[in-house]
Simulated assay, not measured.
Amino acid sequence: MATQFQNRLVGTLILVSLGVIFLPDVFDGEKAHYQESFQAIPLQEDVDETLLEASVLPPEEVESFLPPEEPVLVTIGDEGTKASAGDESIVSEADNSQVAAANTQPKAGYEDSAWIIRLGTFRNIDNAKSLVSKLRKKGYSAQLMPRDVKEGELARVEIGPNVSKDKLASMTADLESLTGLKGQLLRFNPLNP
């Protein structure tokens, strides 16, 4: 038989469990249920027909902050003027001198620009990349221009740019003994490298 203590203990547990279950509902009060309001998306939006008939104004003339673009005329000799130096395939010095003559004329606003040394123009990209890596190992700031050149396109190997023309001019003898290529000192054009 159950003792009086056990009966009281069971009764207390039942009252506590009922309090835990029902008292939070009593203290919370009436529950408010929220329902999201939404609208159906129409299949086709109505178009204002007056917008289709309105005229478009021409753009306003704005003064450009860039110097005027002057076309550079370059004539490339026939295919028989190509020369090879060692295993490197470069375009002849006559072609480079024509390009150099066009690039040495300073455009308006670039009189105090930097200078570069152009070592050569290569059709074989692997030879150009190996020359650039060779020059970088020797401490020269060499690069391949244009940077995203593809196979079959011409790539220029250049040293610089540097604002000191005399410093680059003194490097030409060292570069000629290192690579066997006579570099050309040209004005650097930041808009058309």
Rank of each mutant, 00 (worst) to 15 (best):
M1A: 13
F5K: 12
F5I: 14
R8H: 14
L9E: 11
L9V: 11
L9P: 09
V10L: 14
T12E: 07
T12S: 13
I14K: 11
I14V: 14
L15N: 09
V16M: 11
S17N: 06
G19R: 08
I21H: 15
D28C: 12
A32L: 15
H33G: 11
E36L: 12
S37G: 08
Q39E: 07
A40F: 09
A40E: 13
Q44F: 04
D46R: 09
D46E: 15
L51H: 04
S55Q: 13
V56M: 06
P59R: 05
F65P: 05
P67C: 07
E69S: 13
I76D: 08
E79P: 06
G80I: 14
T81G: 04
K82S: 09
A83Q: 11
D87P: 05
D87K: 14
E88N: 13
E88D: 15
I90V: 12
V91K: 02
E93Q: 14
E93D: 15
D95W: 07
S97V: 12
V99Q: 07
T104L: 15
P106S: 07
Y110F: 15
D112C: 12
A114H: 06
I116N: 01
I117V: 15
I117W: 00
G120V: 03
G120W: 02
F122I: 01
N124M: 06
I125T: 01
K129G: 02
S130I: 03
S130A: 15
S130C: 03
L131F: 02
K134R: 14
L135D: 01
R136C: 05
Y140R: 01
A142E: 02
M145Y: 05
M145R: 09
E153V: 11
R156C: 00
P161R: 01
P161N: 01
V163I: 10
S164Y: 03
K165G: 03
K167E: 11
S170P: 00
S170N: 08
L175R: 00
T179Y: 00
G180H: 01
L181I: 04
L181W: 03
K182T: 03
G183M: 01
G183L: 00
L185R: 08
N189F: 05
P190V: 03
P193Y: 08
